[in-house]
């Protein structure tokens, strides 16, 4: 008794191959849809904004007149913001990930903490804004400064950096850790010389993607009361400032048609900012990348 009836296999073959083709097409259109949406977005933004992307645009502060409006305060503000967010969130995030993966004992408490960090990554940004308003702006009296906004944004992206770093650390094979311990290396030496060099590409990718999110995030800035019309550059960490997404939001909601184009130019600047950050991530990843 044969179980495979080759006649019916051949009969069903056409059907199976058709289904195969249909799904290939479905997946192709799914990809195409995303690409198309992106292309339309790019086209709209570039066609509207490119005319306003002049040297003056980078040299002027915001203005009531579309032709005079510039992005200087917001661009410099966003850069200041990154100088606070990047070190704070990366040091705290990677430190937490190293502790959880390499040092913490695996028990119910540490499992609970791990699970909740993943949950925190899904908390809406406006909630972090309220947290920042309560703790940094009011309780610590930092006001709506670069430092308060930076700490708030750091909190927002910390869970993302922790989770990405944990995954990168976990991907380092255990046998190289054992090899290191087996030669009398301490935990710290193993982490610094073996684990981190291998995990750094993954950690940096996660960190820079998280920082990109912080650059584009608007809701927490609105909640902690970051102003939009600022006619000076930040002078220090406790100085008032504005940031790119705030500026874009402000221009986009103005009634004059021309401000839509200014907003598009602002979006272009933001996107270039993000592209530069991502290029740095890719550069670092390729430079440090290790093969197994």
């Amino acid at each position: 008794m044969k179980y495979v009836n080759h006649e019916s296999v051949v009969k069903r073959m056409v059907n199976r191959l058709t289904i195969n083709k249909v799904f290939k097409a479905v997946f192709f259109f799914a990809t195409l849809f995303a690409l198309l949406a992106l292309a339309i977005l790019f086209y709209r933004i570039i066609s509207q904004g490119i005319g306003y992307l002049t040297p003056e645009f980078f040299q002027n502060f915001s203005s009531r007149f579309p032709a005079k409006a510039g992005i200087k305060a917001a661009l410099v503000g966003s850069i200041w913001l990154m100088f606070v967010v990047a070190p704070v969130s990366i040091i705290l995030g990677v430190g937490t990930a190293i502790y959880l993966e390499e040092y913490a004992k695996k028990n119910k408490l540490s499992d609970f903490i791990r699970m909740n960090i993943s949950n925190l990554a899904g908390v809406p940004s406006v909630v972090f804004g309220l947290l920042g308003l309560t703790i940094f702006v009011r309780a610590l009296s930092l006001g709506n400064s670069v430092l308060a906004a930076g700490f708030t944004m750091s909190l927002l992206i910390l869970p993302v950096i922790i989770v990405a770093s944990q995954e990168a650390i976990r991907a380092v094979p255990n046998d190289v850790r054992e090899a290191s311990y087996g030669m009398g290396a301490t935990k710290w030496q193993t982490v610094v010389k073996i684990v981190l060099p291998s995990a750094i590409p993954g950690i940096l990718t996660g960190a820079i993607l998280a920082l990109s999110r912080a650059v584009g995030e608007t809701a927490p800035l609105i909640v902690i009361g970051i102003p939009v019309i600022i006619q000076f550059l930040p002078t220090g960490l406790l100085s008032q400032f504005t940031a790119l997404p705030m500026q874009i939001y402000d221009w986009a909601k103005r009634p004059q048609q021309d401000f839509q184009f200014v907003a598009a130019a602002g979006i272009l600047v933001l996107m270039i900012f993000l592209l530069i950050m991502n290029s740095i991530a890719i550069f670092i990843r390729n430079k440090f990348s290790k093969r197994y």
Binding site: P173, D175, V176, A179, K290, R291
Partner: peptide, 11 residues
């Protein structure tokens, strides 16, 4: 010193 089952050089 220890030598392991699977060769485990560092990368």
């Amino acid at each position: 010193g220890m030598v392991f089952q699977k060769p485990n050089p560092f990368p």
